[in-house]
Simulated scan of single mutants.
Amino acid sequence: MRVVSSFETAFGGTPEGVWHAPGRVNLIGEHTDYNDGLVLPFAVPWGVTAAVARRSDDRVRVVSAQAGGGPVEEVAGWAAYPIGVALTMREAGLPVGGADIAIDGDIPRGAGLSSSAALEVSVALALNDLYDLGQTPLDLARLGQRAENEVVGMPCGIMDQAASALSKEGHVLLLDCRTLGSRAIPFDLPSHGLDLVIIDTGVHHELADGQYAKRRADCESAAAKLGVPALRDVTDLAGALSRLSGDERKRTQHVVTENHRVEAVVGLLRAGAVAEIGALLNASHLSLRDEFEVSCPELDVAVESAIRGGARGARMTGGGFGGSAIALVATDRAEAMRRTVAEAYEAKGWKPPVFRTATPSAGARRLS
């Protein structure tokens, strides 16, 4: 295992164990998590693996197969994520000592598949096991979110970390981001003759640059003007929109209708009507493009050409401003759809997108 070799090279010893946490795709429910809303993600087969051993002091040293170089102890750049997890655990009163940590991952950075959450959860799970902290998977997700909020400075919601920690193979995760209650909903694509194809646009985004934070601030401001704790609590959408204007009005429109779309998709999945969710995926993308304004030309072309190529539905997934789209397509039409999207990119003079077929996978776990 490459991560073990990396550990041995960097630290001159043997790790006490190896842990893995997956990335995620969000089927639907975008930018609803920090509005106390509903989300429907699932874990993907790709993730982050951490080989870890305890130290006798309090130092935390990290190396990454992707970043290269020797051990890092500075809370900066990519190292802020794993070291931030250890610091956050200590601040929460958990008896976390030092650790040597080697990281390896196969999630493309910036593709919108939540490599950062996978990194946080893999390290949190490793430290939880090694120091016998007794934290639940949900506890670990919350610690990962707190590290990203407070140490990295990215005001993300709980969805990504929860999907990485809690997902079940063959299922999507219905998560209520207010109560943190969750339920696994069967999502058996092969039995319905369907694929869910991830279209990586190759446009890499940095959500900590202020755009994500601005969207969150818009939502919080709108909720305050409406006198509700969060936009999840808006029940009279028409009345709410009549009291708002500009960006706050558009953000509210998206969040409220997106929560309704999550509920509708869950209903269809429970009824076994998997192919019928496509129209809701399309509506979600239009709302993210026009009301929340987090799409980009490459995502829009991916979605439009996927539908033209035979997809039942498609939308951007993740925080936006780049990253990936997803397309629900009949298995026997998937290759033709890929060709249509690739041709659309070629016509624009863009770099070809990368296609991956996503299967709902297991959440974080110890490998050895």
Score class of each variant (00 low, 15 high):
V265N: 03
R216K: 12
A334Y: 11
E120A: 11
G227Q: 08
K348V: 10
W46S: 08
R249M: 11
W19L: 01
V44H: 00
E30A: 05
H285W: 06
A184K: 05
I158V: 13
I326S: 01
L244W: 13
A273Q: 15
D33P: 05
A117K: 13
V255G: 11
R55F: 00
T49E: 15
P108K: 05
D200L: 00
V52R: 06
G278S: 02
V18M: 02
E346Y: 02
A163N: 09
C156M: 07
R315A: 14
L226C: 06
R183H: 09
N149Y: 00
A67H: 14
R215N: 10
A330Y: 10
L281W: 07
L231G: 12
R2N: 15
A264G: 13
W46M: 07
A165K: 06
E206C: 10
A92L: 11
V228M: 00
R178P: 01
E206P: 07
S245W: 11
R356P: 00
G210P: 06
V274Q: 08
R146W: 00
W19I: 05
R183K: 13
L119F: 02
T331F: 01
G47W: 08
L189I: 06
G170W: 11
D160F: 09
K250S: 14
S242N: 12
A325P: 10
A80R: 00
R249G: 04
R2D: 15
R308W: 00
A314W: 01
D188L: 12
S56A: 14
P71K: 07
G134K: 11
F11L: 02
L119D: 02
L138H: 09
R109T: 15
L130T: 08
S164W: 06
V96H: 06
Q253L: 15
E248I: 11
